[in-house]
Structure formats: structure tokens, C-alpha cells
Write a protein that binds this DNA or RNA. Structure first.
Lengths: 174, 174
DNA sequence: CGAATATAATTATGATGTTAATTAATTTTC
DNA sequence: GAAAATTAATTAACATCATAATTATATTCG
């Protein structure tokens, strides 16, 4: 009764090797980067996500929630959960737009600015180390390629929109 | 009582512009890629994560859970939640290793292989479109850079380990 | 004007990621 | 050979993300 079941054929599948998967490569690389940055952030009591928000506000100034979502690449519900906490800690402030009571503008508060200016050197130093090890030119090149790819993908998504929508709505096979 | 509070100074912060943040660039690009692939997967009733598992098994053959975690970049608890579902749907199978009852080997089942072979062409076609639009050479170059960076970061993390551990354990300022 | 539609933001729900604790089994050490 | 330490995997607890539903406010148009 102990006959090994035959292993399913698995070579020469009609698809690229797993190691060449672009999404996987991006995920792995990002995780490797964050592994270096997270401890510093943690020591300041902010998460990666909170830092993203503070940084966007610091660089681009006060913004409405919708703009902030676009700038930080968060979905609106994520912001709805994160912002109240940052507000309580006085890192950010909010004020309703008086011409449209649905909207509110988020801005960096003194405490948030302090956190950023204190932590930025650490962050930049880490960046410098990465650049030194990896090569500054390569880093620039990588950022450029990522940006280009994002643009290309955006164009593609636009063109394929009908196809993608169709696939999205098709029911999973039962 | 409606005096506008002054906006905090925010230019010339001691840190790179948000747009040049490497983690952000990697996140945005990955999300842009997945936006193209997700609808197809969804139409087959599998999530991005489930696909990652099936694909790793298809390419590398049966594996123990720990190996699978490493190959797919999941943490063990995530697999513990995802695998039972795939097993119920007969996409994968599991069997305990008889020389070590703690371990179990996960393998692709006929149904899982069918799903992969059916979906792979769609996936490859999308990949081809991306390559055509973005440029095959640039794509290869990007993957190479990502891989190199991951290696560099791994080395750095090793060297900085004591520093990072110290930062990790430092309490957030009160 | 006022009903219908659109928009900004939040809340709800279910799946996933993360860390820590737990369980079960194996290996090490004296 | 049994107590101690280690390892594989799961479970628990909590934060986060994605999608959908809801709430409150604005806008459009008959």
C-alpha cells in the first residue's frame, strides 16, 4: 500500500521560470530594502506606512485626503484608519474645507516635522550606504527603469482596459 | 477665530524627494504590474498568493512547507492558512514525511497542474505585451539590477546586523 | 425648488502579513 | 536513556489591505 504516487510532470511548462517573475522580483527586492529601513523607523515609533504619509506631507505640503491617497499610494480606507492615530499623536493636523464640508485638508504639525528632521539623516545615511555598495549609477539606472516601466504599464493598462474588465467580471470556473 | 495657522516650513528638508524613494518606486511598479495580471488570475478563482504557490510547485516540484515558504517568500503562518484551502480544492496534496513526522511535503495535484497549464498562456501573453511595450532588453536589464540589488542589500544587512538590532530594540521616544 | 446623481470620506468585511506563543516531534548532551 | 534544547508547523492576536457598502454633502437638471 506504500506505492509512491507518480510526481506530476512539471518540466517544460508553458511559462517562464518562477525566478524570472517580475512581480516576485519586485516584492523580494522591496522587502530587502525595507529590512534595512524598518528598524530605524521603529525606533522612532512610526511604521513604514506612517512614515510614507509624513514624508509626503513634508515634501508636498498640506493636501486633501484624496490627494494624499494618490501621493502615498494608499487606498482611501487605509488612510481613514491611519490618519486618526497620527492626528492624536499631534504629528499631523486636519481641518475641514469650509467650501466643501466633505473634504478635509491634512497637514504636518510641528511634532511631525520634528520627527522627520530628526530621522531624515539616519534614512539618508542608509541610502548612502546602499548607493555605495550597489553603485550610485546603477541605483539611478534602476530608478529610471522602474519609472519607465510604470509608465509603460500604465499605457498598456489603458489599452487593455476592456479586456481586463471582461476578465475581472468572468466568474471563476466552478 | 478663523485665522489660518501658518503652514510649517517644508522645503529643503534634509532628505531626498519622495518621488526618488526606492521602496516607494518598487511598490508602485509592482502594483502596476499586478494590475495587469490580477484580473486573469481572478477569473480562474485563484489569488495572487495562491498562484505563487502553485507556480513554485509546478516549477520546482514537491517541497516541504519550509522550502515552499522560502521559495514563495511567504512566512510560515501565511502558508498554514493558505495551504488547507488549496488542498480542499484538490489543487495540491500533502503527505507527512515518514522519517520526520513534523514535516510534510506539498505537491501539485492533477487539478493544480491543469489550472497552471490552462492559465500560463494568458500570463505569458501578458508578459510578452509588457516586453514588447517596455523593451525586452530593458526588462532583462531591470531583472538583473533587481537581483544585484537584492544581493547587495543582503550583504549590507549582514554587516549592519548589530546596528539594526540595536535600533530595533531601542524604545520609541515617549 | 427638489428629486436624482455624483463625490469625499468612513465603516464593514474578509483575506493577508507579522510577531509571538504553542504544539508536536526530533536531536543533543550528559 | 532521559532531561534539555532545537526544529517544523500551526494557532493566536493584532495591524493592514482590498473591495464593497454606507454616510454625509454637493451638484445637476427637470
Amino acid at each position: 500500500m506504500s506505492s509512491k504516487r507518480p510526481t506530476l510532470a512539471r518540466r517544460s511548462l508553458p511559462m517562464r521560470p518562477f525566478s524570472e517573475s517580475l512581480p516576485m522580483a519586485l516584492l523580494r527586492t522591496r522587502e530587502a530594502v525595507m529590512r534595512l529601513f524598518r528598524p530605524g523607523l521603529r525606533s522612532r515609533g512610526v511604521t513604514e506606512q506612517q512614515w510614507r504619509i509624513l514624508r509626503a506631507l513634508a515634501h508636498q505640503g498640506p493636501m486633501e485626503v484624496t490627494e494624499l491617497a494618490e501621493a502615498t499610494f494608499f487606498l482611501a480606507p487605509s488612510l481613514s484608519r491611519i490618519l486618526p492615530d497620527l492626528e492624536q499623536r499631534r504629528l499631523i493636523g486636519r481641518r475641514v474645507v469650509d467650501t466643501d464640508l466633505r473634504r478635509s485638508v491634512v497637514s504636518l504639525q510641528a511634532e511631525g516635522l520634528r520627527l522627520i528632521t530628526e530621522h531624515a539623516p539616519y534614512s539618508e545615511q542608509m541610502y548612502a550606504r546602499i548607493a555605495k555598495r550597489f553603485g550610485t549609477e546603477k541605483l539611478v539606472q534602476l530608478l529610471q527603469l522602474l519609472h519607465d516601466l510604470e509608465t509603460s504599464l500604465g499605457e498598456l493598462a489603458g489599452e487593455l482596459e476592456p479586456d481586463l474588465a471582461r476578465a475581472r467580471n468572468r466568474k471563476p470556473s466552478p
